[in-house]
Amino acid sequence: MAKVTLTVNGRTVSGDCEDRTLLVHFIREKLGLTGTHVGCDTNQCGACVVHMDGKSVKSCSILAVQASGSSITTIEGLAQNGEMHPVQAAFKDNHGLQCGFCTPGMVMTAVDLINRHGNSLTEETVRAGLEGNICRCTGYHNIVKAVLSAAAEMGTARQAAE
């Protein structure tokens, strides 16, 4: 058994699990944060994407014990004071989802993309940046629109703050 300590969405949490427990199972089953989804279980679909120390990772591709000591942000950690994160709002406004299963991973990936590229994102960069996230409903079109719209929105917000 391993003792795993993580900072999840700003809160320090600990729990015991088997050495072989995947981070995604620790997050869902030990912490009850079921917004992070298991889609394919073969490390391809990206429904389980979370941020580990500020970088997007597939939480089904890493053991919880490997992640111990790190800072994790899940989809539940994005909204602040009951207000949706600009990326979540953009997915809603642009109809960037249908069944919604892939959406947590898409949103976490989009936030990571915008953090890395700011509002210099182009449609091409967004499409390339979403290569690790599979959506079987939307055909990606409105997801790409949502990411670009959120990037513009967040860029404008940054400029206003400066």
Partner: peptide, 9 residues
């Protein structure tokens, strides 16, 4: 290589 998440790890 792979996708952004794979490249991060």
């Amino acid at each position: 290589i792979g996708d952004p998440h794979v490249r991060h790890l």
